[in-house]
Every structure is written in structure tokens, then in C-alpha cells.
Computed example of a mutant assay.
Amino acid sequence: MTVLPYIFVLFGAILWGTTGTAQTFLPDSAHPFIISAGRSASGGLFLLIIMVFLKKIKFRSWPWKHTLYAALCISLFQLLFFSSVRLTGVAIASVVAIGSAPVFSGLIEWVFLKMRPTKVWGISTGLAIIGCMFLFITKGEVSINPLGILYSLVAGIIFALYTMTSKYLLQKEEAISIVAMTFSLSALLLTPFYFIFDVSWLKDVGNIGIIFYLGLATTSVAYVLYGWGLRKIPASSALTLSLAEPTTAALLGVIVVGEILSATSWVGIGLLLGSIAILTFGSKSASRPTVKEGEVSV
């Protein structure tokens, strides 16, 4: 098994890790729902225009049902995640949301798809959970808001469902086309929020630049990389690798935003990095049954 798909997922997750930090540069009046809508629109529509121009999308035969599922999942995930960042900070929101996703995915694969987790996945995920606990138990200045934690946990479940739905779609279409269609539909679903919340802050060029960064870098590029990797590896493994996101977010939260993490939190970051290394390189010698076409239905 080549290591390249794991590297793709890893780099995609690192780009995701910059999302929460980028959001902190937006004004307080920037509602998380508008940020989500703008991110989906700038990321999805940009790719959609390119894919339509290249005639890579066949609308008549497109798997609309599962694409709508994926769009609903990613829309809800963004709404919950950005809301959680506002309530409990970049580091904790990222750790809880993405840290819980591989556990939920592994359980879903095991219970519903009868895919028993490998030892490598079990060890790496176990280390990741311990790492998340160390990151969570902080005596620094990171606030822990119960509602924010709840948002993050639900976001973790939804992201696991998004990943499994994408896994099915990747058996049908190319990763770039899937990201284009999924986020364009997400942008459409989130459009009503433009008429509900304040959008005056979008008049600032700097704020628009941040939205475009969120759309192009953390959506277009990141999710395409994630899709390329996800095509070749199990969903639960991809989600464990995505723990590079909270690791990146935690580091950026300290370096850029000024959040303070305790010594135990740094131990947690080390454990997360170790879990990623074990899964990436340990999976080269491990084998696991792949999902047959049509087997996943979310």
C-alpha cells in the first residue's frame, strides 16, 4: 500500500487547521453562518466553473442523492464548527470536533459495514484519543464552554458521516468534481443566512480576502487532497489522519492568536503527531478490506 494517499489526507488536514485561526481575524460582527456560506460559495463555485468549462461534470447522470447528503453534512459541520470556535476557542473546538470523528467513523464501519478495525488503526486512534484528552486538560487561558463542546461533538459525528458519504461518491466521480458539486450545493443551502444576519463587514476588502482564503485554500485545495487520499484508504483511517487539523490549529492558536496551552497540552500535541505517524507508515504493511461499490449508503 503506497503512502501517498495518506500524505494527501495529511496535507489537506493541515490546511483545515488554518481555518479557525483565519476566522479570528474577521470582526466580531462576522456571524459563523455567513462565514460558512461565504466559504462554501468561494470554494465550491470556483471549482464548479472550472469543471463545467472542462466538461468534467455530467449533470444528468450525477449521483445527486448522495451529493445532497454530503452537502447537508458539510453545511451543518461548518455551522457547528465555526460556532464552537467562537464559544470555546480554536484549539479546543478543533480537538473535540476532529478528534471525535475517527472514533465515530470506526464504530459506524464496524457496526454497520462489518469492517473490523485494524490493529494499526486501533493503536493510532487510541493514542489520538489520549492526546486529545491531554489537550483538553489545560490550565492555560483557553476557555472551555460546555455548549461549544457540544457543538464540536455533534460536528464530529456529522464530519464522520460526510467522510463516509464522500467515500461512496469517490467510487462514482472524480474528487475535484465531487468537491465542486458538494460545496456549490452547500453554498445554495446556506444562501438564506445572507438575508438573516449582518453582512456589512463583507464590504471590507481584507475580510473578503479571508473568506476567499477559507474558500480556495481550506475548501477547494484541502478537500480535493482529502478526496484523493480517501479514494484509496478507509474512512476511519482518513479521519484519524485528519487529527493533523487540531494539531495545526492548536499550534497556530498559540503562535498567531495568542492562546496559552499548558505543558499537558503540549504532551497531547506530541501524542497526536505520534498517532498520525503510526497510521501513515504502519498502514503500509497492514491490509484491510475495501468497501465495495454501492456498499456505503448514508
Rank of each mutant, 00 (worst) to 15 (best):
F136R: 00
W64R: 11
P63T: 12
L72A: 12
S100H: 05
G44C: 08
A71F: 11
S40F: 09
F77S: 10
K119D: 12
T67V: 13
S105G: 10
I92F: 04
A70S: 15
L45R: 03
L68G: 06
V103L: 15
I137Y: 08
K55A: 08
P117Q: 11
I108H: 07
I108F: 15
S84Y: 02
L80N: 08
W62K: 07
S84K: 01
R39Y: 05
L79K: 01
F82P: 02
L47C: 08
T88C: 09
S40T: 06
L107P: 11
A37T: 03
L68W: 14
M133T: 04
I74V: 15
S124I: 03
V96S: 02
C132K: 00
F53K: 15
F46H: 02
I108D: 09
T67A: 13
R116L: 09
I49E: 07
I92N: 02
A93C: 06
V90N: 00
K114E: 13
G126E: 02
A71V: 15
S40K: 02
F112A: 13
I49C: 11
V85C: 04
P63Y: 14
F59H: 08
A41D: 02
R116S: 11
T118C: 13
V120C: 12
R60S: 15
L135V: 04
W64L: 15
P63D: 12
V90E: 02
A101F: 03
